[in-house]
Amino acid sequence: MEAFITYTLFAMLVATALAAVQLNRLFAVVMLSGVFSLLSAVLFVVLDAPDVAFTEAAVGAGISTVLMLGTLALTSRTEKSSSRSSAIPLLVVIVTGIVLVYGTLDMPNFGSANTPANTHIAAQFIEKTPHQIDVPNIVTAILASYRGYDTLGEVVVVFTAGIGVLLLIGRLGRRGERQKQIGRGE
């Protein structure tokens, strides 16, 4: 049953991606990308990763869809038709896909208990969290405490990204413009 759900979700993911590539009305493409994120979130739930699913649903399906719609309102509703042949991009995509699939052949089976990820440090986290941190959600304990530096880095990345967007399109330069005008007046 679980395999059936997983395969169905993957089939729907592929169908959504193909539909998004085919369409040239960008509004529909943005909506399909939201659907894609939502399907990925469901897939993460099936894989027992509710924290990741939560983030994917909130960020991927929620915020990025809104921001893409905002971008759409500032630019154009339809995709420009390209006259170039798509043979070379298709070749690149197929070759990359084959390389990626070849790479997964070396990976351990899904859910295998003997993988380095499951034997090395994860076992220590599961063993030590109850008496070192005493928090039921081990994901939170790892994110906020054991890996506090990394999360600080993530927050700074989010902060920097926000500043970047504001500098590019946020009209923060008003003070500068005013000073320029004053300078010209003199």
Binding site: I63, V66, L67, G70, T71, L72, A73, L74, T75, S76, R77, V158, F159, A161, G162, V165, L166, I169, G170, R171
Partner: peptide
């Protein structure tokens, strides 16, 4: 939350072309 809101403000604050 502040970054998300301010990014939204930045996008929505520009005059739309559509």
């Amino acid at each position: 939350s502040a970054v998300m809101i301010s990014v939204y403000y930045a996008f929505a604050g520009r005059p739309p072309r559509i």
